[in-house]
Design a protein around this nucleic acid. Structure first.
Lengths: 144, 144
DNA sequence: ATTAATTCGGATAAAATTATCCGAATTAAT
DNA sequence: ATTAATTCGGATAATTTTATCCGAATTAAT
């Protein structure tokens, strides 16, 4: 459904959010270990998120990644997905047509409407805070 | 959402279904032209669908692909997707965890339930006949 | 100042997906 | 029989995605 990069990006963001609640900046190394992802590849993804100001990074010793506490509840999954994979997953045509709309629909256009709308709604309403809380309370997991 | 291979596979199947209604076997060349796909790559995908008995192929001059008329309304999108991309799109974990269920859910597990269920339902209830009819009546398109 | 811990960014490599090529086999028509 | 139109299947190539490597820059601590 999502690319690997996007999966890593979402998981990393949730973990950073959790740690940021605890006033702890977290290093690339810790993130990669926690979400079970390749370090260098994860670094690229975090850089992308940082450039889009979804997370913030600090260089040097004791540096790392964090999310401004007050911002955690405002960051939506859609922003993360969009920053990494783009919005084609819920805006593009299911069969890859370059133009696919009511006037010129692909054969599955109508069938897909509900699915994509449901996906879009979910991504746009889910924020990092609720996901981080699930993780903190131990009801959800980032690996295995 | 789907792989290119899967997109081609779905489009090709719809076109083959349409032609099969008209008792016409259709060649790889015609299919690729109609759905705007690379010929040789499309051939591989059609072979895969043929081996899974979703479509049938006939070798030699005047050969080509077709779908038994009575079968058209029974072939579901889910079968095509499954034959080409596998079922991970609507059964796998949204964040790529190898085990993700009620007992050990990823952070977005619950959020994704509805989306994936909607997708699964759609793929399992949509059959080739209705898609071919939309194409025949000129309300849907396979390219541009 | 020096050192150690870090992110940054560019180059490269590996793996997966997408795409092409071509000879072999099959079939219909002549 | 020969030819032309086709699918089949294996090899290869191009592209994209995923992953690794490494030197440079930055920062905190000593």
């Amino acid at each position: 459904m999502f690319s690997k990069a996007c999966e890593y990006g979402i998981k990393a963001s949730i973990f950073i959010a959790l740690k940021s609640y605890q006033e702890t900046r977290v290093s690339l190394k810790d993130i990669a270990a926690e979400i079970n992802s390749p370090e260098a590849f994860t670094a690229k993804i975090l850089q992308k998120l940082a450039r889009k100001h979804i997370i913030s990074s600090t260089k040097g010793a004791a540096g790392g990644f964090e999310i401004e506490k007050s911002k955690i509840s405002t960051v939506k999954l859609a922003q993360i997905v969009d920053a990494i994979d783009g919005d084609s997953i819920y805006n593009g045509c299911g069969l890859g047509l370059s133009t696919c709309d009511e006037n010129h629909p692909c054969p599955v256009h109508d069938k897909f409407l509900d699915v994509r709308e449901e996906l879009r709604r979910m991504l746009e309403t889910t924020n990092l805070e609720e996901l981080a809380l699930g993780l903190k309370s131990g009801v959800t997991y980032l690996k295995t």
